[in-house]
């Protein structure tokens, strides 16, 4: 987990792309911090799991994706949604349970999806996504689109049979699939150092005949590079890859989690490892972007989130007329 900024990768990204990456990460961070604040007021119903701290993973991977590609996410899915282009205002409205939400208030935080964007949904079931991504990758392969499927999952899901079966199936069928294990150190309150019976989740790739890569998850450029290679290989018919992204989540497992199971790591990560700080210093120190450009993005994002929250709060809730609709296409 060294600082692996390869100059070649950084140069692959033009100024616009760098700015877009920063905007995505900043949007995720601002979204999550705001949801954290708003949740404390009691206005947001249900379970909410925040992605803050992990932004470089979703952003670094999704920067390579286009409309041919699909991703599956986890219960901690807001970051993946934003990185794959789901509308932020609709997401916020969904979290508030409003009719204007991405899923008309029927899904909630754990099920935000936008299939038109290739976002197959946050997923309330740990390990729910990898089999689905085998399917989206299979579809891309059958249709010859050159598309890939990306399954984001956590260290907890890395121990689920569904995930392990999917790794095997993806290799057996030689699917254009990328499995991104986001190891934030804890499955709920249980440390992955305890629950994963291997030194690294990526080590398991060998057992499924695919490359396994470990990446510093706080480093956007490291994620971007590793994902780029895996996705390129997948598009060219070279089969699946397992990427383990290691980092720390800044908030608890869910909002309200007192986090008594862990000690100092969050404060240290926020201070010394934070992906936004590192990205910012790197692009400014190398003269790729100006501070002012980045600050302008911060302001725009802040305004967007403010507007998203205001609109979400003002939006109508679904009504009784919505209760029984959308179960089937036809019944």
């Amino acid at each position: 987990m060294t600082d692996t900024l390869s100059t070649s990768v950084a140069h692959e990204l033009d100024e616009n792309a760098l700015l877009q990456a920063y905007r995505t990460m900043r949007t995720i961070r601002a979204f999550e911090e705001r949801v954290h604040e708003e949740f404390a007021t009691g206005e947001i119903p249900g379970f909410v799991h925040l992605y803050a701290g992990e932004e470089a993973s979703a952003t670094g991977v999704c920067a390579h994706l286009d409309e041919r590609d699909a991703i599956a996410s986890t219960h901690r899915g807001h970051g993946h949604c934003i990185a794959k282009g789901v509308d932020v205002k609709a997401m916020m409205a969904e979290i508030y349970g409003k009719k204007t939400g991405s899923c008309q208030g029927k899904g909630g935080s754990m099920h935000i999806a936008d299939l038109s964007k290739g976002m197959l949904g946050a997923n309330g079931i740990v390990g729910g996504g990898p089999p689905l991504i085998c399917g989206t990758a299979l579809a891309a392969k059958q249709q010859g689109t050159g598309g890939v499927g990306v399954a984001f999952f956590g260290d907890g899901a890395s121990n689920q049979g569904t995930t392990l079966e999917s790794l095997n199936l993806a290799s057996v069928w030689n699917l254009p699939a990328i499995f991104v294990a986001e190891n934030n150190g804890y499955a709920e309150a249980t440390a992955s150092t305890w629950s994963v019976a291997a030194d690294n989740i990526a080590d398991r790739a060998a057992g499924f005949g695919m490359p396994g890569v470990i990446v510093d998850g706080f480093d956007f450029f490291a994620v971007y590079e590793a994902a780029g290679e895996a996705i390129r290989r997948a598009r060219e018919g070279g089969g699946p890859t397992l990427i383990e992204v290691k980092f720390t989540r800044y908030f608890g497992h869910f909002e309200g989690d007192q986090q008594t199971y862990r000690a100092q790591e969050v404060a240290e990560a926020r201070e010394n490892l934070d992906c936004l700080k590192r990205f910012r210093s790197r692009v400014t120190e190398t003269g790729r972007l100006e501070e002012a450009d980045l600050t302008a993005v911060d302001t725009q994002v802040s305004d967007l989130i403010d507007a998203a929250v205001d609109e979400a709060k003002a939006a109508p809730k679904p009504t009784e007329a919505d209760l029984a609709t959308d179960v089937y296409v036809s019944y």
Partner: peptide, 16 residues
């Protein structure tokens, strides 16, 4: 079964 039934489901969301 989880993997391939899930794969069938995933593929169904993508035009198959």
């Amino acid at each position: 079964e989880s993997a391939f039934v899930g794969a069938a489901i995933g593929a169904a969301t993508r035009g198959m």
